[in-house]
Design a protein around this nucleic acid. Sequence first.
DNA 1: CGCCAAGTGGACGGTGCTCTCCACTTACGA
DNA 2: TCGTAAGTGGAGAGCACCGTCCACTTGGCG
Lengths: 197, 197
Amino acid sequence: MRADARENRARVLAVARELFAQRGLDVPMATIARRAGVGVATLYRRFPTKEALVVEAFTEQFALCQAAIDEALIDPDPWRGFCTVIEKVCVLQASDRGFTAAFVASFPDLHTEVRDRTWHGFAALVQRAKDSGSLRADFSPHDLTLVLMANGGLASAPVEVAVAASQRLVAYLLEAFRSGTDQLPPAVPLSLDLVLR
Amino acid sequence: MRADARENRARVLAVARELFAQRGLDVPMATIARRAGVGVATLYRRFPTKEALVVEAFTEQFALCQAAIDEALIDPDPWRGFCTVIEKVCVLQASDRGFTAAFVASFPDLHTEVRDRTWHGFAALVQRAKDSGSLRADFSPHDLTLVLMANGGLASAPVEVAVAASQRLVAYLLEAFRSGTDQLPPAVPLSLDLVLR
DNA sequence: CGCCAAGTGGACGGTGCTCTCCACTTACGA
DNA sequence: TCGTAAGTGGAGAGCACCGTCCACTTGGCG
């Protein structure tokens, strides 16, 4: 690959990440191209479709999620590990407007590879937290999806507001996850497949 | 207005309500027209713009929200009143895919008239619940918006799933609203203006 | 230095949407 | 029954977007 081409590709990706974060996924490809100082054709040569660009632009964030889980599994305090994961992922989601959309948009592709690993990691985290007595027994791993979807609902607000709101929401939820005095409606098996439509 | 015209108008409105609930607000006007057995022109004659149709289609639901608050203010048990409002509104929102979008889409029009009334009603409800000692003191009326936005995030799932998920989410949140042992991040003044973009 | 594959940009086709225009039809008062 | 204003449907204007095509430019190897 020629040097100038590689540079252009990198610039496109950077611009895409920025615009997706600020304005969500419905930024026109032409806008991204213009802001990156290239023509649309260049953009499409590197990323055959918009979805491809989206996926590539967000793989970094997905890796961060995975890393958060891995790290939490090492934390000697199971409850703190559990909380940290939820807090980290929610901040990530709230501070990047395209995150949720990218997540579902790319799900058919991530397929079982990354997905199952993340899921099992989180399930383990949940079990550890339950065993230590800090997480309520009727918490379901599916509740992670519940949290993600709920938190995603904040994305329509401007970023700083969304982050602040997300922090308060997460604080409320974590408190509810810990105490566990009341009877809950049954857990809903929200595999993200469902969400994907 | 001629009899046949009135009938057509009603049919359009019914179809619109149904389709918006099932599929969200991005149903094409042509689809609504076809399903109602009329041409697009007829539709546009009655509702000069798509937004007008949306607003008209959802005024019923808005009234239901208002009624829920009024009713709750009469409830002798302040905490039960508070819970009922949140539960009712959230179910409404989760079972109708277009609800949230319609809510924000029509906000500039509802303007101060309905809006302030709803807001003051809810604030009163909150105060009552706090005074009775059942609602945590650091709960903010702005947290209603927080709940609405979070609950709105569930709307991308199929309706029955969304309702079930919403019920569990609300149960978690209400528990957190009641107990109130932990320190919270500050409330975020999420006036819906902000959400509107 | 010169060649050419790799790279480029902008015009353009295709699609799907909202809303308008206008020639035609129909309810209904007189 | 008949005239007419109210009502109607469908074609299409206008717009925004995704993705393609092709004549042109340029980096960098030999």
